[in-house]
Simulated assay, not measured.
Amino acid sequence: MALDKLHVLLVCNLGYSTGIMVTKMKEVAENSQSLKDVDIKIEAHPAGELKEYIEDFDVVMVGPQMKHQLNALTEVAAQFNKPIEVINSRDYGAVNGGNILKAAILMKLKPEV
């Protein structure tokens, strides 16, 4: 399956800490030859606003500090049939936008079970 669009929503408590990650992920995407023709949108928003934004995105990634809210966030994501995962805390702490972007791509391409 070819990747033609990847819209990633990062959620955290207030949307601030993931804002830095959005910048890093966008840098990686812009400098990637294999993603040059892919429609990429990456945004960060507070977890409390998930319902307001989720329809515009393909995947939802949760900041590790919000892991305790994963069950509630997963219920919302399920209503919209969107995959959701917690961001790897090591990658998050290291601000490794490349690994997190790769995880988002794998989420999008993962076949539904």
Rank of each mutant, 00 (worst) to 15 (best):
Y53H: 15
V76F: 11
G93N: 07
Y92V: 04
V86A: 05
H68W: 12
N71E: 13
R90A: 08
V62A: 11
G93S: 13
D91F: 06
K51N: 14
P64V: 11
I87G: 04
G98D: 08
M66G: 00
M61E: 14
G98T: 07
M61Y: 13
Y53P: 02
D91I: 00
Y92D: 03
L70N: 03
G63L: 02
K82G: 03
K67H: 08
G48F: 05
N88S: 06
K67S: 14
V59L: 13
D91N: 13
M61L: 15
G63A: 15
V62Q: 11
V60S: 12
G97M: 10
V62I: 15
H68A: 11
G97N: 02
A78H: 09
F57S: 03
T74P: 00
E85S: 12
R90Y: 04
E52C: 00
V95D: 00
Y53T: 00
R90T: 11
E52K: 15
L70M: 13
I87E: 03
Y92S: 07
N96Y: 04
N88F: 03
G98I: 02
K51D: 12
G63Y: 06
V62Y: 09
V86P: 00
T74S: 12
N71V: 08
Y92N: 05
V76E: 09
E49N: 13
G98M: 07
D56T: 03
A78D: 15
F80K: 14
D56Y: 11
Q79L: 13
S89E: 11
G98N: 11
P64A: 13
K67I: 10
H68C: 01
A78F: 01
E85Y: 01
K67F: 08
D58M: 06
V59W: 13
G98F: 06
M66D: 03
